[in-house]
Amino acid sequence: MILIFGVPIQALTGQLMVGLINGAFYALLSLGVAIIFGMLRIANFVHGAQYMLGAFVAWFLLNLPNIFPGLGLPTIGYWVALVLAPLVVFGVGILIEFLFIRRVYDLDHAYSLLLTIGLTMVLEGAFRLKYGSSGQPYEIPELLKGGRNLGFMFLPYYRVWVVVVSLVVCFATWFMIERTKFGAYLRAATEDPILVRAFGINVPLMLMLTYGFGVGLAGFTGVMAAPIYQVSPGMGQNLIIIVFAVVVIGGMGSILGAIISGFFLGIIEGLTKVFWPEASNTVIFVIMAIILLVRPNGLIGRVAK
């Protein structure tokens, strides 16, 4: 057996893989939170519940015949859910923005946090009513089942898929916001909404779509997560707090910062599990406290307003 720092290499690479997977999810979720905070100045605490919603929509689609028996509905699998569920969550996001979020744009940021805490309670409570706190299993799609033994570790295909997709989506989103014309409008609308409106751009609609997009990302992440973690009402609860810490570490509203620190912290967390298991739950929060002392605006921070 090969040992690295007194740890078997299988354990090390195994936890590194778990860390990378968690990092992929942290990055995807932090990305959404960072976009919503950076562009809308809204601290979207309900992001975790929206991620849970995405996973549940995928589960509903898979179990349509059982949920509505007698209607002859087909079961809709992972690949369609990967497109359909984010769209549904996007729609829910648009509705939430229209009904609630837009009423707190002009108030202090603190109110957006309080409002979204309330929305989280409503969403999670509603799912708890129906499903308790138990998890619903969701199978890995046929195409991605199995894995490959690399000798020093077993590499499941689905996990590779998650990491790759996460990287692609993160890069595409970053590119769209930082490098395209739409992104430029969006950033301009954040800086000076009145001027941008004067140029004939529908800013409220743009903000609404941006919120929907960020939330849709959460829904997408939820579908990606469904086969790995079980689908349960509380699945987003602890995650959202970690994601908030990741966003703070990356620099509030910094998209690149959120992506990089998402992956980075996932891996750090994985390594902590190997070397000091007791600290693995808290390491991210400790890092956050240290970062705030050393670099108050986060790793890649624009100056917070």
């Binding site: 609630f100 409002l115 309330g118 409503v122 509603a126 009513l129």
Partner: peptide
């Protein structure tokens, strides 16, 4: 009523903020 407590609390939260 179980989880209804959470739902009601959430609704009150939202109403208070708005």
């Amino acid at each position: 009523f179980g989880a209804w407590v959470l739902v009601f609390q959430g609704v009150i939260f939202v109403v208070c903020v708005l």
